[in-house]
Design a protein around this nucleic acid. Structure first.
Lengths: 191, 191
DNA sequence: CGAACTATTATGACTAGGTACTAATAGTAG
DNA sequence: CTACTATTAGTACCTAGTCATAATAGTTCG
């Protein structure tokens, strides 16, 4: 045994988690076991075969697109949403989001996350940002995870909705914005 | 012939475009032709097989680096710049920048262009946005060219610089923002 | 009329990346 | 020694195709 069964299976989960596109054959080579062993492992761990994995990734994508009234191209992953009330999204700051020179996240990514969330939380297909008032209260670095929390204010004008978005890294406030959103379905009943 | 070859192939393109998960067999039933005919059609139209289609949908989704924003160092092309004074950039609104639903540009792209320009115009390697006050004054559609003009205000505070950015499409103002930028190379503490 | 051509269908051999099942072997524990 | 686990091997079968070849039906040209 190169590794214990348990270790290998743990690694297998991680490996497939990172890259669902890997075949049993490739995995067998990587772990220096036979293809059959990999298949037994997958069976025990209830990991579906390659094609099913790919399919589910694709379906997840497609279903996002279908249900995509507001959620078309959100920056960050929405993990919780209650339309017209509040929403939370996560955005992991990666290498491509930061200034090369100092590793600090470019402001527009934080803005994009907040703006996306503000658009998404509004229960309106055509929500658009009209104005925004924002502050970057702390610099965000590569590798940090930004949690944005949006809440819709009640004191909204007709046809306009105010959304407050606060973004946090750990316990620290890194971004604060007030978004004035235009909405189209002012007094209409919508589905 | 139930339909002409041309009609069927046109419909085939649309059908697969709407639902890439459909098999040749299902298509054959739908169009009342043999599976072989469907395959010939796909060959002529260069439509890849089901598995390849699913895979590409999945891959598109998985590369959230692309999804997260293909934002390089600068959004838009800077066509004129005078450090600490003013700068101009051009940003062409393409398909990937707009809401699918209505073809209106997502606010964060206009913000990103303006923010990028505000950072660039500051004669400081480590310029960062501290606050911004922005307005989206007119909707921008796919295909339009946005010209952003940044000018640095003199009335800046120590360690801070105010940059005004106005963005235009043709003669119309589409975006207006006031950016308060940090700068490090004034005798201030490191940021 | 027959030859030429297009469109369609059928057939068979082969492929990747599996599932499901059976069987053999190596190594360890009681 | 026996029981058991872990691993490997092999076979048949599956889906959703590719590729090549051939047969057939219908139409058009001369």
């Amino acid at each position: 045994m190169r590794r214990s069964k348990k270790d290998r299976q743990q690694l297998l989960l991680e490996t497939i988690g990172e890259n669902p596109f890997v075949t049993d054959e490739e995995l067998a080579e990587r772990f220096e076991v036979s293809v059959q062993t990999i298949r037994l492992d997958r069976l025990e761990l209830s990991i579906p075969e390659l094609r099913e994995r790919i399919k589910s990734v694709a379906e997840k994508n497609l279903s996002d697109e279908i249900k995509a009234l507001p959620i078309e191209e959100i920056i960050g992953d929405i993990i919780d949403i209650e339309l017209d009330k509040n929403a939370i999204s996560i955005f992991d700051v990666k290498h491509e989001h930061v200034f090369k020179r100092n590793g600090i996240a470019r402001g527009h990514h934080l803005f994009a996350q907040a703006n996306s969330l503000a658009v998404a939380v509004i229960n309106d297909e055509l929500a658009l940002t009209a104005k925004a008032n924002i502050q970057f209260t702390r610099q965000v670095k590569e590798g940090e995870r930004v949690i944005a929390k949006a809440r819709v204010e009640n004191r909204s004008l007709p046809g306009r909705t105010i959304v407050e978005v606060d973004s946090w890294v750990g316990g620290e406030l890194v971004f604060k914005g007030q978004f004035e959103m235009y909405r189209s379905n002012i007094d209409e009943k919508e589905v």
